[in-house]
Design a protein around this nucleic acid. Structure first.
Lengths: 337, 337
DNA sequence: TTGTAGGCGTTATCAG
DNA sequence: CTGATAACGCCTACAA
């Protein structure tokens, strides 16, 4: 780090460090001339205030953390896109943390972040968790936290979600309308709030259409693709579903692979619909019907909420709960040819 | 920030702040008992050393920056995945910056980052640039920089790339072997090094197969999807290509949309191949032949190089140039049914 | 093995 | 309008 520091610059210009600081902070208690002189010289010598020092001095980091299960995923990467955009507009920096759905990592991140590194956190939880008490401890501190998409219901803080229940209800209804009689529901973790909400929509929709609910049609899959494939092969072989409702994109894609393999015609033999942010759903074979979440907008919304509470550090009891609408887009995977 | 600080903890324990510091830094000039006592109390009071302060003191941030054009993109998000993994293993934090292919942003990020916020930078450039002198200035400073995938040839630093030329040569050859006579090459920016390398492979492959090179078959597209679509519609209507080699995934997907629209049969009427990290290329209609880059591995490699130079701050003249191999995977979009 | 003191680079306060 | 000073929280010589 051979950067110049404020003292050296002060030396060069024969002014005090405070004056330099003033020139950079945009205060108005400094004459135009000196300010310009300072800025010019700073430019020349490539001086910029050191962040570490000023952050320490001001007790803030101008940085937020984004904690997500994964990033190589359309939904999360677009949400991060939205977050980054808002952060940048606010002059903030964005740290990324990936949990890979590992609850221990989640706890480690959260714990570590509460010691000056960031001013706020945006997070989509792993859901592997039973005990969220570590979070409650954190909630007592003043650092704002916003959940998005995957949330812990028992943690009181701001949340950005989508109308999962309604979407599930609608999607299931759509499958029923298409004549499906044996609709399986694919889920990764039944206990995660998001899985629960979506599952409830599925159940209620079946019920209100006079269909019987069969617990064995709820399939608990895995985050591991190999395991999931095995499970799905079994499902298609023995359960012979005529409809598949996947709670996450990955499970629908896995179903595609399995159906292609087993020569099951998607759209006719079996109809598939899923939650997905995949832009190219129309290009799949066959094009995939999706419930598309506004990923980017969710990121933007979460970030805006975070920055609002960053600006009003006093009323930290004012939590916001935003629900955005997803869109059911019907394509050939549920409508046949 | 109602966290406790080192002084308060020292007060509570009736020891000096230095002793506490020692307990946390794993030094051995401290008795086991006091260390344990301190750590226990710290745990109880939820004390953790403040990063800002220790970073300032130690003149390092334990943070790296990743600057990429976009994140909602399979290639970059997987590369970031790899980078994050390595960074985490090294106890580092990862800041994300998105340029959206805007050169001014790139300059702003780079410039801003050179004042204490990060210890190193990993970057994939916008390529919109003509003048990289701002970079040269930075190169004189001691903060390490690693390029990956999209690089500036005239900037001397470590680089991680793939064998683009060979892959292009091979892919073009494959199209020729499939009987294509009018192969268009789709590119976003001819002047970007990556575009150039790939284009050269395309040219040389044509030449060595005795085909004539027609400059008009090199199509300069846009980052804007609407514009690109218009351009491609024109191309398919008037140039009537029987082969398409897209230098980036997005252009191949745009071609898919246009072909579907215009009722041009991909795989028979026109064969399409492209650089792509799309996991679900096999599921497209028809399945897409790709040159697949090892995105995750490139991220890992770039990060490892960065950390190596972080560990040896002395020999900053020891730049590494790594070339990983992509894989040409033939599917139905070039092989017909 | 432990404590004391100085400083990392800034900035707010206060005095002039 | 400008300068001196103390403090942000921590870490490392150095001293004991």
């Amino acid at each position: 780090m051979d950067s110049i520091n404020i003292k050296q610059l002060a030396e060069k210009l024969k002014v005090s460090t405070s004056t330099i600081s003033r020139a950079f902070r945009g205060h108005n208690d400094i004459s135009k001339e000196t300010k310009e002189k300072i800025l010019a010289m700073a430019q020349e010598l490539n001086y910029q205030p050191n962040h570490l020092a000023s952050n320490l001095r001001e007790q803030k980091s101008k940085t937020i953390a984004v904690i997500v299960p994964e990033i190589a995923n359309n939904f999360f990467s677009r949400a991060i896109n939205g977050i980054e955009r808002v952060a940048r507009d606010n002059g903030f920096h964005v740290l990324i943390y990936l949990t890979n759905d590992d609850f221990d990592k989640e706890v480690a991140f959260i714990t570590e972040l509460h010691h000056g590194r960031v001013d706020g956190i945006i997070m989509s939880v792993t859901g592997e968790a039973q005990d969220h008490s570590y979070m409650h401890k954190i909630r007592k501190k003043s650092i704002p936290l916003v959940f998005f998409d995957r949330v812990y219901d028992d943690v009181i803080t701001s949340k950005v979600a989508t109308n999962d229940y309604d979407s599930s209800y609608l999607a299931t209804r759509h499958l029923i309308d298409q004549g499906c009689k044996r609709i399986v529901y694919l889920v990764v973790n039944k206990n995660l709030s998001i899985g629960k909400m979506r599952m409830q929509g599925y159940f209620d929709s079946l019920e209100s259409s006079g269909e019987t609910i069969r617990e064995e049609l709820v399939i608990d899959c895995s985050n591991d693709m190999v395991k999931t494939t095995l499970i799905l092969e079994h499902v298609f072989k023995y359960l012979k579903p005529d409809g598949v409702f996947a709670s996450v994109e990955r499970l629908a894609l896995a179903s595609y692979y399995v159906c292609h393999d087993m020569n099951i015609a998607i759209g006719t033999d079996v109809k598939i619909v899923c939650f997905s942010s995949l832009e190219i759903a129309p290009l799949l074979n066959p094009s995939l019907s999706t419930i598309t979440q506004p990923a980017y907008d969710m990121g933007v919304e979460a970030a805006q909420i975070l920055f609002r509470s960053l600006e009003n550090p006093d009323d930290n009891e004012n939590y916001e709960n935003v629900v955005l609408n997803s869109e059911l887009i019907i394509r050939k995977s549920t409508s046949g040819i």
